[in-house]
């Protein structure tokens, strides 16, 4: 992946597929340490499945027998000296409190750190693809915070769907404006 924001898009799509109704995407930069956390309330995975998603020869899709999403995230993290952990609670064992948390750490001062890239496009793409799901997004950059909570937008919008072109544009501008002071 050319940008980490593409890994974020790809990994978050797993949460969508897991039937999540709320997905939290958080990036926290403290000094040269970046921690990416994607938390969902989807169906979760059993412990034996959690082990296999780290293996490129595991996938949920039926068109072929390899799944590269998590392995690519691991590659991006590990080549900077960071890593990936996955915690998951499957709905059968945790009917009240199921979901998955994927955490990846990166050393941004490492020469093999992949640039974060266009997170705004990632958020626009996710919301367009799943307008019925709520997303919370925060990006903390050494004290400067960018944030979005689709639940707040939904309160304002009523029955107007989040994936309307004008709304997606507004969301993009809203996030880009928040990024500006830091640039």
């Amino acid at each position: 992946m050319k940008e980490l924001s593409l890994n974020v898009l790809d990994i978050t799509k797993n949460s969508v597929k897991a039937g999540a109704t709320l997905i939290d995407i958080s990036l926290v930069e403290v000094g040269s340490l970046l921690t990416l956390t994607i938390t969902d309330n989807g169906c979760g995975m059993k412990p034996e499945v959690v082990e296999t998603v780290m293996n490129p020869f595991y996938t949920t899709r039926t068109t072929r027998k390899v799944g590269m999403g998590v392995p690519l995230l691991m590659l991006a993290a590990e080549q900077t000296g960071g890593g990936v952990t996955i915690e998951s609670r499957h709905k059968e064992e945790h009917p009240e409190n199921h979901g998955t948390v994927v955490t990846a750490t990166f050393h941004t001062d490492h020469i093999d750190f992949t640039p974060i890239g266009d997170l705004v496009s990632t958020m626009e793409t996710l919301i367009m693809g799943s307008p019925e799901i709520d997303f919370t997004f925060t990006h903390d950059m050494n004290g400067h915070r960018v944030e979005l909570d689709t639940r707040q937008l939904r309160e304002v919008l009523g029955e107007v769907p989040l994936d309307s072109y004008e709304i997606i544009q507004w969301i993009g501008d809203f996030l880009r404006e928040q990024y500006q002071p830091a640039e």
């Binding site: 593409l6 590269m68 626009e124 367009m128 072109y165």
Partner: peptide, 23 residues
């Protein structure tokens, strides 16, 4: 197509271009 393979190959700007173009 927006699976891992599509995203890695550059599908995100393609999607944006279609959404923008159509609108």
């Amino acid at each position: 197509g927006m699976a891992t393979c599509g995203i890695a190959a550059g599908a995100r700007p393609v999607l944006s271009a279609f959404v923008e173009g159509v609108n």
